[in-house]
Design a protein around this nucleic acid. Structure first.
Ligand SMILES: Nc1ncnc2c1ncn2[C@@H]1O[C@H](COP(=O)(O)OP(=O)(O)OP(=O)(O)O)[C@@H](O)[C@H]1O
Length: 743
DNA sequence: CCCAAGAATGTTTTT
DNA sequence: CATTCTTGGG
């Protein structure tokens, strides 16, 4: 008992030990919400004597689930078995397999990732005679996914637009193909589980009785389907323990709704609400910055949050010319901090809004030889060679998987082209075969409509598939992989698809890594292996033991913490992202995203932005520092870089005069704002020689871009230039010998 | 059916 | 720019 509650403050202890009934823990970042949930699981088992099997604990990532498992095990000093622990998706997959006889699927169903889904969508669009070049498959898929998150079936789907009509035609076909392939997409995992519980009284009652205790972390990022699951599973005991923070809801784009926290209070009116107010993660400075940012959101209930880590290092704001300079700054600072304060590489995280930004940071790391790990992006499972081999494994596991079949029937090239595949498809449809039956007919030498090389290849291919299936049943998965690689000439193929010897080697190494992974699954079936890797998320792959700097999106950073955090690209248009500008809910979410990023920091926080950021090939910009930066009071930051200072001045002045700036006279407001920068405002100032965005050359600093120029007196002006190499400088025109390169 | 060259197209965030 | 798709000659 003592250790279970040691290391918990009184509010946390209350949350852990509260008796039966609904509980809602509402608290800010770093207040120990996850810790409380973990301790409560241990407490229920050890002190209350609850049977572990009757506990279901939902985490946001598989990684969090693993951590929770090992934390609970060390609290209990024994292995934890029986507890249903995992993400909503993982838990639903497990339960659906167990109850597959009550679903349209068999227990070895596949889980389709986005690429698989797109392949199905394209097929469905073709069959529904929708021109896929006019309607982007991704958009249609997005609409279907959104519908599924709201538990809207193909029959119930309707939308009053032309696009909606198209979706309405594609959705039923999409769903049919999935079922025929014995496959579920991510959204199906939740939706089908809800339907199973809603429609099957026996199953529902059995699970309601079985799972007496339900605990859910990160409740603010549940979607409607997940919320329904909570409602369904919590009955009749209503022993639900939900933990969350409305200010950290950042997944609205995939259907999550932070208002579920409110819905919880509505649906469980007798819920005991517990607030945790002490933050154990961050310094006061970090919390103050976070509060300054989030408090601008209107629709929120402010929460108290204090830390005993008073003071702290002020936040560093850094203005870089471009993303290269930003990367260099970050990497150099990491090395400095490591040397001067004894941090390890793994104590640092570099965060960004979009994955594309990781490139510049990576380049800087490579240039400085700094070990890093990239979370997300083109991860291991998204590599072409791995996807190909997994398609083999999936087809072997389930010969009805048309998506995998289509992917690899001619990979490596074996002379079965588009036409042959189409003919095969037609033949299958005409005879009302399943794909599996069709393949076995071919393997056994039956009639089928291909000829020549294509026919011979197809026969060999199908024979192989069935031979491999036998091998898979024997259990040695590494041997199976070796055989696939050998018989398909996969290594030659790797060479063919690579543009360099290095790339070939890299791909071969990936194949070896896959082999190693299969070895770890020794003793499990092929189906089990495929099931587990299908739900591996990017953050799940973080190995806390290797000493590397972590590069990740703000979204993936949720729930994590690092001693030193860099948030890069804190620019208007990126954070907040331009796609959210016209939508106040979207802007509020961008702010929450910034809030989540800031509150990951334990000791030190760096916020950087650039003047120019390359996109595609073109140099973008000029960028403005993020409006969120303007909300941070000066006493929390070190120096305020020039562009931000300028923006703040502008805003301060604009605010002052706004009462007299009416829409009919925008020019007046503009003029007055410009004048505000002049040392001595003159009625008719001569136009400046240098103008914003001009490219200029300086003998020492090299090439640069004029940010602004203001007249000091009749024949001199002060020019602020951002140099590619030398950063931002303030120069007197009479003195500096600047050459204008273009106008 | 295959391949190479050129065109097109795309960047928000993800289980 | 960098990956994916289209096109046309072998
Ligand atoms: N009572 C406590 N004493 C010491 N450390 C604590 C205590 N409670 C929590 N912590 C530590 O504070 C940090 C944050 O805890 P935790 O991750 O559980 O917070 P959280 O509320 O889930 O955060 P977030 O909402 O940001 O994900 C962890 O390092 C945890 O070990």
């Amino acid at each position: 008992m003592t250790e279970l509650l040691a290391g918990l403050n009184p509010q946390q202890q209350e949350a852990v030990t509260t008796g039966d009934g609904p509980v809602l823990v509402l608290a800010g970042p770093g207040s120990g919400k996850t810790r409380v949930l973990t301790h409560r699981v241990a407490y229920l088992i050890r002190e209350v004597g609850v049977y572990p099997g009757s506990v279901m604990a939902v985490t946001f990532t598989n990684k969090a689930a693993n951590e929770m498992r090992s934390r609970v095990e060390s609290l209990l000093e024994s292995r934890l078995t029986g507890v249903q622990l995992g993400t909503f998706h993982a838990i639903c997959a497990r339960l659906l397999r167990r109850e597959s006889q009550h679903t349209p699927y068999t227990a070895d169903f596949l889980i389709y990732d986005r690429d698989d889904q797109l392949a199905v969508i394209k097929q469905a669009m073709a069959e529904a005679e929708v021109n896929s070049s006019k309607m982007r498959p991704g958009r249609v898929l997005g609409a279907i996914s959104a519908a599924k998150n709201e538990l809207i079936t193909p029959e119930k789907f309707s939308a009053p637009t032309y696009f909606g009509e198209v979706v309405k035609r594609v959705y039923p076909r999409y769903q049919e193909i999935l079922v025929a392939n014995n496959a579920l997409d991510f959204d199906d995992l939740l939706m089908q589980m809800v339907f199973l519980l809603q429609n099957n009284d026996e199953v529902r009652e059995r699970y309601q009785r079985y799972y007496e205790y339900l605990l859910v972390d990160e409740f603010q990022d549940t979607n409607m389907a997940q919320y329904q699951l909570v409602l369904l599973l919590s009955k009749p005991q209503n022993n639900v323990f939900a933990v969350g923070d409305e200010d950290q809801g950042i997944y609205a784009f995939r259907g999550a709704d932070y208002r579920n926290v409110m819905h919880f209070r509505r649906d469980f009116p007798d819920a005991k609400v517990i607030l945790l107010e002490q933050n154990y993660r961050s310094t006061q400075v970090v919390l103050d910055v976070a509060r300054a940012v989030i408090s601008k959101n209107t629709q929120r209930t402010p929460k108290a949050l204090f830390t005993e880590r008073g003071g702290g290092v002020r936040v560093t704001l850094y203005e870089a010319y471009d993303e290269r300079e930003e990367g260099t700054f970050i990497v150099e600072r990491i090395e400095d901090l490591r040397r001067e304060h004894g941090y390890d590489y793994k104590d640092f995280a570099v965060m960004y809004r979009t994955n594309a930004q990781s490139r510049a940071i990576e380049d800087a790391c490579v240039a400085m030889n700094l070990p890093y790990r990239l979370v997300g992006g083109v991860g291991f499972y998204k590599r072409r060679e791995i996807k190909d081999l997994l398609a083999y494994l999936r087809l072997i596991n389930n010969a009805n998987d048309t998506v995998s079949f289509t992917r690899i029937v001619n990979v490596p090239k074996r002379g079965i082209g588009k036409k042959s595949i189409a003919d095969f498809r037609k033949w299958v449809a005409k005879n009302n075969f399943t794909q599996e039956l069709a393949l076995s007919v071919i393997a056994e030498g039956g009639e089928f409509p291909l000829s020549g090389k294509a026919a011979r290849s197809m026969t060999e291919f199908t024979k192989n598939i069935f031979a491999w299936r036998k091998q898979a049943d024997d259990g040695d998965l590494t041997l199976l992989l070796d055989d696939i690689v050998a018989r398909t000439g996969f290594n030659l193929y790797l060479h063919d698809i690579s543009d360099s010897e290095n790339q070939t080697i890299e791909r071969s190494e990936n194949v070896r890594e896959l082999r190693g992974l299969l070895k770890e699954y020794e003793g499990e079936t092929l189906g089990e292996f495929l099931a587990e890797i299908a739900l591996v998320a990017d953050v799940d792959e973080i190995d806390d033991n290797d000493d590397k700097v972590t590069l990740l999106t703000l979204h993936s950073a949720k729930g994590l913490e690092f001693p030193v955090v860099f948030i890069s690209g804190v620019e208007d248009g990126l954070l907040p992202h331009i796609r959210s500008f016209d939508d106040s809910e979207g802007m509020a979410e961008e702010r929450r995203l910034m809030y989540v990023g800031v509150t990951r920091a334990m000791d030190e926080l760096y916020l950087s932005y650039t003047f120019r950021r390359a996109m595609y090939n073109a140099t973008g910009g000029p960028n403005e520092p993020s409006r969120f930066l303007e909300d941070i009071p000066a006493h929390l930051t070190k120096d305020i870089p020039p562009m931000l200072a300028q923006k703040q001045n502008q805003r301060a002045f604009a605010d002052e005069i706004s009462w007299e700036t009416d829409w009919d006279a925008p020019r007046l407001g503009q003029r007055m704002r410009d004048d505000a920068h002049a040392a001595t405002p003159k009625p008719e100032p001569k136009p400046t020689l240098f103008k914003s965005n001009q490219r200029v050359y300086h003998g020492i600093f090299g090439e640069g871009i004029v940010i602004e120029s203001k007249r000091v007196d009749d024949d001199d002006e002060e020019v602020v230039v951002s140099f590619a190499e030398g950063g931002i400088k303030r120069l007197m025109a009479s003195f500096a010998k600047l050459t204008i390169l273009d106008g």
